[in-house]
Design a protein around this nucleic acid. Structure first.
Lengths: 235, 235, 235, 235
DNA sequence: GATGAATGAGGGTTCATTCAT
DNA sequence: GATGAATGAACCCTCATTCAT
């Protein structure tokens, strides 16, 4: 009993070690920039040992990238869920993007590599695949639909088209950041860039009755701005 | 002399052939999806001959991607040059993005691969490298400075920070598009998505006195909207 | 003692399980088509456990193939033993071949793989090795000697040379059948082909005074033909 | 001109070298008993160089085995073609088997490996594949049909069934021989064994009016026996 | 006795690059 | 200048076997 348990723990630890080292190599040298031999060496393992935890390089990469993607999307979904209007959900997701980058830079970057690794599942596609893409697309679409219904978003909005645009832009930013070499990234305020971009998006979809500067302000860290009066009046 | 000249012409033609074929292969199969042998075969050349025009695969790829980048940036620079205000320059560049994609999709896509291939020259960096990046950065910066000076842009704008943001977002979109597989791209109105994104950017930087819907309208194909009255009044 | 006994029984059962599963895999995928891991998985054992019963893959395969060979040869030996003349013994062994194939196709096929796996003990060799070969060779040789002595076989026969020929041809057929993929084998009347071949052999070695058609007839299933009058007369 | 020619010659020589060495290794150690590295080493080449002549191990093996098979079948076809009756054709092919073995032992042996290597084309199948199998099957079938028509073969013969039997037996012998290790083979009169087997086959299919001993005699090396009177009388 | 993680040698294949011709 | 044969390092992957637990 204890033996089995310990073995599982060891196995998980091994798996985690491999993932950790590989994550680092992906971030450092890119998906094609390292060999399994490198991973094995870094862990003082033989190459064959890696195959006990993963069926091959493919699965290893997928595991890492999908993990990162899932982590990211779950974070965003949680943010959106705790909102009280469609606009609020959009704003929260936007801030989430920003905050997630600052806290989990690596996962954010890895998330951006998904398309490179699995271009057959581009996140911009509104197609229903049995994978993560639809999660993000569905997430954004849900916020827009909700916002149009509750009046917090521009009533003339085309939810379907705008979903595509937002997803496209959001994932573009992620992709972009994922390809900036670490050392250069360190010298940039990437978080601020991302925040700005989402500020723009919010302004584009909000109910026009809401003063734009309030939207901008709501993106400032720790801000607590109540926008409801503006659009509730309109209803 | 005539002999020398002809030799040079031949050499250039050879070089162009190689570039042309390789471009196609990059677009079709990706940067890592083809071998030099494929290029040689397609041109009925021997593999070794390629090394007479390029010092290796690396240089070949660089040449192609930088060509594409140059072509793209020159197009944008020409658009910006023929403007009569900073805002107009921004709008022209935005429309240029849109139009260039529709007319020169390939170059647009290849431009987007630059970062993937040469991440040491990311376009987002405002640093002055001896390469293209500074061209784009300088281009955008010039428009913003001009617009702030002539009143067509938001006077409260921080030109340096906003340059970074715009370049970042613009190149993000390009990168993103460059990674969508051709067949999927064909089913999307990518041009429209790009157009939307730049519409948002323009709204963000324009002088607030200008009605937003006029800015939007100015992005419609073939539009001729005169925005000058609004900001000239303000001055 | 009881404990020891039970342990032995368990050990034998384990060994038999391994052999059974491996047999199936050999027949299904060929000698090189499976890994020890597959065997272990099929039995819910660990790979290492297999080494408690067998010193390695080699010994395991040997055991299986030799088992199959032994089973086959014992069957033939029993058939030959219950005969009342050399010719009868040959005929019985021939029919035995045929019948064994129909009843124990798998063992027959595995028997044929012996040479492939252990070509150093080819069954055709009349040499006395410390293995099975000599059993078959001795079996056939015994029948021929007996038949020459009792007059049922062609008196001009060279027992030594003919033994070689018969063993060679008989094992050739077995080998051949063992390499026909199962699905194709299912569509052929392999038993009939084998029966024909042995009919030919019997005709070749019988006392010429015996009408050939009677020999043929004696190969028909369930036939009871008394050939003794013909050669007894001759004596 | 001369350059191209010489290059081709060199290339062919290289290819032939590889084939020669590989043939030896197949005969010595079996199809699975050697690695491309061994071949490369034996020729003082790098492993990669082999890929200039063959697309992989598969193609190399196929080339060798199919070459051997073609050579063998063409030899037999030529023998059969120069016959003056169905029986004669059978006898000639039989002697051809025998002679080919003595003269071209290696090709004979390699021919026998075809099934092992490409079991999807077993020679025993009368199916019409676009490959060698049908050649041999068709060859034998043609002889039988001819012999039944001209009276030299047993008129009660079932050509279709007998074709299968003969092909089966003939290829069985080839297979068998191909698996005997070279050193052991050297101590056996394999040619004689093969000759005997075909003698039996001939006796089985010949017109019964022909004395069997004459058939036997016709298999002796250099024999010139006219069997026509016997079956011509019957007609 | 049983486990299964770990090994490590080896296999086939690809490809950018070199260099004698 | 042009060739293309040759290289050799790398890469991913498989698997029989060992051994500490």
């Amino acid at each position: 009993m204890g033996v089995q348990e310990r073995r599982d723990r060891e196995k998980n630890r091994r798996r985690d070690d491999i993932i950790r080292v590989t994550r680092g190599m992906i971030l450092e040298r890119g998906v094609d920039g390292f060999a399994l031999q490198d991973v094995a060496n870094a862990l003082d393992l033989s190459k064959g040992t890696l195959y006990l935890s993963f069926s091959g390089k493919d699965e290893l990469l997928r595991a890492i990238l999908i993990d990162a993607g899932t982590e990211f999307l779950e974070y965003l979904a949680a943010r959106a869920a705790s909102s009280d209007s469609g606009l609020d959900a959009i704003l929260r997701m936007g801030r989430g993007y920003f905050e997630f980058y600052n806290n989990q830079e690596d996962a954010f970057v890895l998330f951006g590599l998904m398309d490179h690794f699995a271009p057959e599942f581009p996140f911009v596609l509104p197609v229903t695949e049995d994978g993560l893409p639809s999660v993000f697309v569905g997430l954004v679409r849900g916020c827009l639909d909700r916002g149009v219904a509750d009046g917090s978003l521009d009533p003339t909005l085309d939810p379907e088209g705008m979903t595509l645009n937002i997803v496209f832009m959001a994932t573009s930013l992620v992709d972009k950041v994922s390809k900036i070499p670490r050392n250069i990234r360190a010298g940039m305020d990437v978080g601020a860039v991302i925040g700005h971009a989402f500020g723009l998006l919010a302004r584009a979809v909000a109910n026009p009755a809401i003063p734009r500067n309030l939207i901008d302000r709501s993106f400032e860290p720790g801000a607590r701005v109540d926008l409801t009066p503006y659009w509730r009046n309109e209803q």
